[in-house]
Design a protein around this nucleic acid. Structure first.
Length: 257
DNA sequence: GTTGAGCGTT
Protein backbone atom coordinates (compact mmCIF):
# COMPACT_ATOMS: atom_id res chain seq x y z
CA UNK A 1 0.00 0.00 0.00
CA UNK A 2 1.20 3.40 -0.79
CA UNK A 3 1.66 5.95 1.82
CA UNK A 4 -0.93 8.00 0.04
CA UNK A 5 -3.49 5.27 0.27
CA UNK A 6 -4.30 5.11 -3.37
CA UNK A 7 -6.05 2.33 -5.13
CA UNK A 8 -2.75 1.13 -6.40
CA UNK A 9 0.82 2.10 -7.03
CA UNK A 10 1.27 5.25 -9.07
CA UNK A 11 2.81 4.95 -12.51
CA UNK A 12 6.53 4.57 -12.14
CA UNK A 13 7.21 5.31 -15.77
CA UNK A 14 7.58 8.93 -14.83
CA UNK A 15 8.99 8.37 -11.41
CA UNK A 16 12.36 7.46 -9.99
CA UNK A 17 12.46 4.78 -7.37
CA UNK A 18 14.92 4.91 -4.54
CA UNK A 19 15.76 2.01 -2.35
CA UNK A 20 16.18 2.80 1.31
CA UNK A 21 18.03 0.12 3.21
CA UNK A 22 19.10 -0.40 6.76
CA UNK A 23 16.11 1.35 8.20
CA UNK A 24 14.70 0.23 11.48
CA UNK A 25 11.86 -2.23 11.58
CA UNK A 26 9.85 0.41 13.26
CA UNK A 27 10.38 3.05 10.65
CA UNK A 28 7.32 3.69 8.58
CA UNK A 29 6.59 5.56 5.39
CA UNK A 30 5.28 8.46 7.39
CA UNK A 31 8.66 8.73 9.03
CA UNK A 32 10.48 8.72 5.75
CA UNK A 33 8.14 10.98 3.90
CA UNK A 34 9.14 14.24 5.62
CA UNK A 35 12.78 13.33 5.23
CA UNK A 36 12.63 12.60 1.54
CA UNK A 37 10.03 15.19 0.77
CA UNK A 38 12.39 17.89 1.89
CA UNK A 39 14.81 17.05 -0.88
CA UNK A 40 12.30 16.71 -3.66
CA UNK A 41 8.84 15.83 -4.75
CA UNK A 42 8.05 12.42 -3.39
CA UNK A 43 5.49 10.65 -5.50
CA UNK A 44 5.05 7.63 -3.33
CA UNK A 45 6.64 5.68 -0.54
CA UNK A 46 6.26 1.99 -0.08
CA UNK A 47 7.64 -0.28 2.58
CA UNK A 48 7.45 -4.04 2.03
CA UNK A 49 6.01 -5.73 5.05
CA UNK A 50 5.88 -9.20 6.38
CA UNK A 51 2.76 -11.06 5.43
CA UNK A 52 2.59 -12.76 8.78
CA UNK A 53 3.09 -10.04 11.30
CA UNK A 54 3.01 -7.14 8.91
CA UNK A 55 6.25 -5.76 10.25
CA UNK A 56 8.56 -3.79 8.05
CA UNK A 57 11.21 -5.80 6.28
CA UNK A 58 13.81 -3.21 7.00
CA UNK A 59 13.81 -1.31 3.76
CA UNK A 60 11.59 1.03 1.82
CA UNK A 61 11.04 2.39 -1.65
CA UNK A 62 10.76 6.08 -2.26
CA UNK A 63 9.63 7.40 -5.58
CA UNK A 64 10.67 10.79 -6.75
CA UNK A 65 9.19 12.77 -9.55
CA UNK A 66 12.51 13.94 -10.88
CA UNK A 67 15.85 12.27 -11.15
CA UNK A 68 17.83 15.20 -9.90
CA UNK A 69 15.77 15.32 -6.76
CA UNK A 70 16.13 11.63 -6.31
CA UNK A 71 19.86 11.89 -6.78
CA UNK A 72 19.98 14.68 -4.29
CA UNK A 73 18.03 12.68 -1.79
CA UNK A 74 20.43 9.80 -2.26
CA UNK A 75 23.34 12.06 -1.64
CA UNK A 76 21.69 13.73 1.29
CA UNK A 77 19.85 10.96 3.01
CA UNK A 78 22.34 8.24 2.27
CA UNK A 79 24.05 7.56 5.55
CA UNK A 80 21.54 9.58 7.45
CA UNK A 81 20.69 8.34 10.91
CA UNK A 82 17.01 7.58 11.14
CA UNK A 83 15.45 6.30 14.31
CA UNK A 84 18.88 5.46 15.61
CA UNK A 85 20.12 3.58 12.59
CA UNK A 86 22.04 4.68 9.58
CA UNK A 87 19.96 4.27 6.49
CA UNK A 88 21.26 3.64 3.01
CA UNK A 89 19.63 5.37 0.10
CA UNK A 90 20.30 4.26 -3.44
CA UNK A 91 18.55 3.95 -6.75
CA UNK A 92 16.41 0.89 -7.15
CA UNK A 93 17.76 -1.69 -9.53
CA UNK A 94 14.55 -3.54 -10.13
CA UNK A 95 10.97 -2.48 -10.43
CA UNK A 96 7.94 -4.00 -8.72
CA UNK A 97 7.48 -6.23 -11.73
CA UNK A 98 11.14 -7.09 -11.95
CA UNK A 99 11.75 -4.51 -14.58
CA UNK A 100 15.26 -3.36 -15.04
CA UNK A 101 15.67 0.09 -13.74
CA UNK A 102 18.36 2.62 -14.40
CA UNK A 103 18.63 5.55 -12.08
CA UNK A 104 15.26 4.60 -10.74
CA UNK A 105 13.70 4.70 -14.16
CA UNK A 106 12.68 1.69 -16.14
CA UNK A 107 14.96 1.14 -19.07
CA UNK A 108 13.93 -2.35 -20.10
CA UNK A 109 10.95 -4.66 -19.66
CA UNK A 110 11.12 -7.96 -17.86
CA UNK A 111 14.22 -9.82 -18.98
CA UNK A 112 13.11 -13.37 -19.72
CA UNK A 113 15.78 -14.56 -22.09
CA UNK A 114 18.65 -13.60 -19.94
CA UNK A 115 18.51 -13.84 -16.19
CA UNK A 116 22.22 -13.57 -15.79
CA UNK A 117 21.98 -9.91 -15.03
CA UNK A 118 19.80 -10.69 -12.08
CA UNK A 119 22.00 -13.54 -11.06
CA UNK A 120 23.58 -11.24 -8.60
CA UNK A 121 20.65 -12.02 -6.38
CA UNK A 122 20.85 -15.67 -5.39
CA UNK A 123 17.65 -15.26 -3.46
CA UNK A 124 14.44 -15.81 -5.22
CA UNK A 125 11.58 -13.47 -4.90
CA UNK A 126 9.53 -14.46 -1.96
CA UNK A 127 6.44 -13.45 -3.83
CA UNK A 128 6.88 -16.34 -6.17
CA UNK A 129 7.67 -18.44 -3.21
CA UNK A 130 4.84 -17.98 -0.80
CA UNK A 131 2.15 -18.20 -3.41
CA UNK A 132 3.21 -21.74 -4.10
CA UNK A 133 3.41 -23.19 -0.65
CA UNK A 134 4.88 -20.69 1.65
CA UNK A 135 2.68 -22.08 4.37
CA UNK A 136 4.30 -25.49 4.34
CA UNK A 137 7.75 -24.11 4.45
CA UNK A 138 9.05 -21.62 6.91
CA UNK A 139 9.78 -18.09 5.96
CA UNK A 140 13.28 -18.25 4.68
CA UNK A 141 13.51 -14.60 4.07
CA UNK A 142 13.36 -13.95 7.77
CA UNK A 143 15.25 -17.05 8.67
CA UNK A 144 18.36 -15.32 7.48
CA UNK A 145 18.64 -13.70 10.83
CA UNK A 146 21.33 -15.77 12.39
CA UNK A 147 21.56 -13.52 15.36
CA UNK A 148 18.26 -14.77 16.54
CA UNK A 149 19.70 -17.99 17.87
CA UNK A 150 21.24 -16.02 20.65
CA UNK A 151 18.08 -15.55 22.59
CA UNK A 152 16.32 -18.77 21.92
CA UNK A 153 17.27 -21.77 19.90
CA UNK A 154 15.09 -24.42 21.44
CA UNK A 155 11.99 -22.62 20.39
CA UNK A 156 13.03 -22.63 16.80
CA UNK A 157 14.60 -26.04 16.90
CA UNK A 158 11.39 -27.48 15.57
CA UNK A 159 11.93 -25.54 12.39
CA UNK A 160 15.32 -27.09 12.05
CA UNK A 161 14.04 -30.57 12.44
CA UNK A 162 11.45 -29.88 9.82
CA UNK A 163 14.15 -28.79 7.46
CA UNK A 164 15.96 -32.02 8.05
CA UNK A 165 12.80 -33.96 7.54
CA UNK A 166 12.20 -32.20 4.29
CA UNK A 167 15.74 -32.67 3.19
CA UNK A 168 15.46 -36.33 3.93
CA UNK A 169 12.14 -36.55 2.19
CA UNK A 170 13.62 -35.02 -0.88
CA UNK A 171 16.47 -37.49 -0.90
CA UNK A 172 16.79 -39.07 -4.35
CA UNK A 173 17.19 -42.48 -2.77
CA UNK A 174 14.82 -41.67 0.04
CA UNK A 175 11.73 -42.28 -2.02
CA UNK A 176 12.11 -44.38 -5.05
CA UNK A 177 8.41 -44.42 -5.59
CA UNK A 178 6.20 -41.53 -6.46
CA UNK A 179 7.03 -38.31 -4.78
CA UNK A 180 3.41 -37.77 -4.02
CA UNK A 181 3.92 -39.08 -0.54
CA UNK A 182 6.51 -36.44 -0.09
CA UNK A 183 3.78 -33.92 -0.41
CA UNK A 184 2.18 -35.28 2.70
CA UNK A 185 4.93 -35.55 5.27
CA UNK A 186 2.45 -34.80 7.99
CA UNK A 187 0.69 -38.11 7.61
CA UNK A 188 3.69 -39.87 8.93
CA UNK A 189 3.22 -38.20 12.26
CA UNK A 190 5.71 -35.35 12.45
CA UNK A 191 5.42 -35.51 16.21
CA UNK A 192 6.68 -39.03 16.22
CA UNK A 193 9.57 -38.08 14.04
CA UNK A 194 10.40 -35.35 16.40
CA UNK A 195 10.38 -37.70 19.34
CA UNK A 196 12.81 -39.94 17.57
CA UNK A 197 14.84 -37.03 16.46
CA UNK A 198 15.05 -35.74 19.95
CA UNK A 199 15.80 -39.14 21.35
CA UNK A 200 18.66 -39.62 19.02
CA UNK A 201 20.29 -36.87 17.13
CA UNK A 202 20.20 -34.84 13.97
CA UNK A 203 23.18 -36.73 12.70
CA UNK A 204 23.24 -37.06 8.92
CA UNK A 205 23.64 -40.78 9.56
CA UNK A 206 19.93 -40.85 9.79
CA UNK A 207 19.46 -41.43 6.11
CA UNK A 208 22.26 -43.93 5.98
CA UNK A 209 20.88 -45.67 8.97
CA UNK A 210 17.54 -46.00 7.35
CA UNK A 211 19.07 -47.35 4.23
CA UNK A 212 21.08 -49.89 6.16
CA UNK A 213 18.19 -50.91 8.30
CA UNK A 214 16.04 -51.04 5.28
CA UNK A 215 18.29 -53.72 3.89
CA UNK A 216 18.56 -55.51 7.17
CA UNK A 217 15.00 -55.28 8.34
CA UNK A 218 12.78 -53.67 5.78
CA UNK A 219 9.71 -54.94 7.51
CA UNK A 220 10.56 -53.55 10.88
CA UNK A 221 11.66 -50.21 9.63
CA UNK A 222 9.34 -49.50 6.77
CA UNK A 223 7.46 -46.48 7.93
CA UNK A 224 5.01 -46.45 5.09
CA UNK A 225 4.72 -50.05 4.10
CA UNK A 226 4.30 -51.46 7.54
CA UNK A 227 3.47 -48.89 10.11
CA UNK A 228 4.42 -50.31 13.50
CA UNK A 229 1.00 -49.58 14.83
CA UNK A 230 0.78 -52.97 16.52
CA UNK A 231 4.26 -52.60 17.85
CA UNK A 232 3.49 -49.14 19.02
CA UNK A 233 4.67 -48.97 22.63
CA UNK A 234 2.09 -46.36 23.52
CA UNK A 235 -0.74 -46.08 21.04
CA UNK A 236 -2.66 -44.01 23.52
CA UNK A 237 0.05 -41.42 23.36
CA UNK A 238 -1.13 -40.47 19.92
CA UNK A 239 -0.36 -36.77 19.92
CA UNK A 240 -2.90 -36.09 17.22
CA UNK A 241 -5.82 -37.62 18.99
CA UNK A 242 -4.78 -36.32 22.33
CA UNK A 243 -4.17 -32.91 20.93
CA UNK A 244 -7.44 -32.86 19.12
CA UNK A 245 -9.26 -34.07 22.13
CA UNK A 246 -7.60 -31.43 24.18
CA UNK A 247 -8.35 -28.85 21.60
CA UNK A 248 -11.97 -29.70 21.16
CA UNK A 249 -12.94 -30.00 24.75
CA UNK A 250 -10.23 -28.99 27.10
CA UNK A 251 -12.80 -28.50 29.80
CA UNK A 252 -14.42 -31.85 29.22
CA UNK A 253 -11.53 -33.38 31.04
CA UNK A 254 -13.03 -32.10 34.21
CA UNK A 255 -14.52 -35.02 36.14
CA UNK A 256 -17.35 -32.88 37.33
CA UNK A 257 -19.76 -31.56 34.76
C1' DG B 1 9.86 -11.55 21.62
C1' DT B 2 13.90 -11.14 17.92
C1' DT B 3 16.70 -9.72 13.46
C1' DG B 4 20.05 -6.53 9.48
C1' DA B 5 21.48 -8.65 3.67
C1' DG B 6 18.86 -6.84 0.25
C1' DC B 7 15.02 -4.79 -4.24
C1' DG B 8 8.36 -3.41 -4.30
C1' DT B 9 2.22 -3.45 -3.13
C1' DT B 10 -1.07 -4.45 0.99
Amino acid sequence: MSRFGRSGPPPIRDTYSLLVLNITFRTTADDLFPLFDKYGEVVDIYIPRDRRTGDSRGFAFVRYKYEDEAQKAVDRLDGRVVDGREIMVQFAKYGPNAERINKGRIVEPVPRSRGRSRSRSPRRRYRDDYRDDYRDRDYRRRSRSRSRDRYSRDSYRERDYRRHSRSRSYSPDGYKKHGRDSLSPARRSPSRSRSQSRSRSYSPDDNKRRGRDSSASPASRSPSRSPPRKTSPSPERSPVRRKRNDDRSPRSRSPST
